[in-house]
């Protein structure tokens, strides 16, 4: 068995309302440190995680928008965002804080089939 697996982190929840978005970032950074082949998928309310312009001072919670920008320093360059989820929320790729690959649901479904490990948040 190869020690390098394809990990996909599936994000379907909005940030700040629950902790899952932040924890997903923590895990993907650790997985990258283990030299795994990592990608992140954003669909449903998960696309809100990437909406740029988080100002978290008022809720006194540490913002983590900048971490998305740091992902490529950890060789996590594959951020897949579901086109349909963006459109349903009045968003386009220009509203997001990092460059992403916008994909259709069918493409995302295929990508999921190619993974070894899918972790959902």
């Amino acid at each position: 068995m190869s020690d390098i697996k394809k990990f996909m982190f599936v994000n379907r929840k909005a940030p700040y309302g629950t902790i899952y978005a932040l924890e997903s970032l923590e895990v993907v950074l650790i997985a990258a440190a283990f030299d795994q082949n990592c990608s992140m998928a954003f669909l449903d309310d998960g696309v809100y995680q990437l909406k740029k312009g988080h100002q978290t001072k008022g809720i006194e919670v540490k913002g983590f928008e900048k971490t998305y920008g740091a992902l490529e320093d950890y060789d996590i360059e594959k951020l897949y965002v579901d086109q349909e989820s963006l459109a349903a929320r009045g968003l386009t790729a220009e509203d997001l804080c990092v460059p992403v690959e916008v994909v259709s649901r069918a493409e995302l479904g295929k990508l999921m089939e190619e993974q070894d490990v899918l972790l959902s948040f």
Binding site: F7, I30, D116, S120
Partner: peptide
Amino acid sequence: SGLGQLIEAGIQADRIVVFG
């Protein structure tokens, strides 16, 4: 222990199932 244990669990196991 650390989060690395979660990644190791994913690497070493044939199957990983998340409950949440």
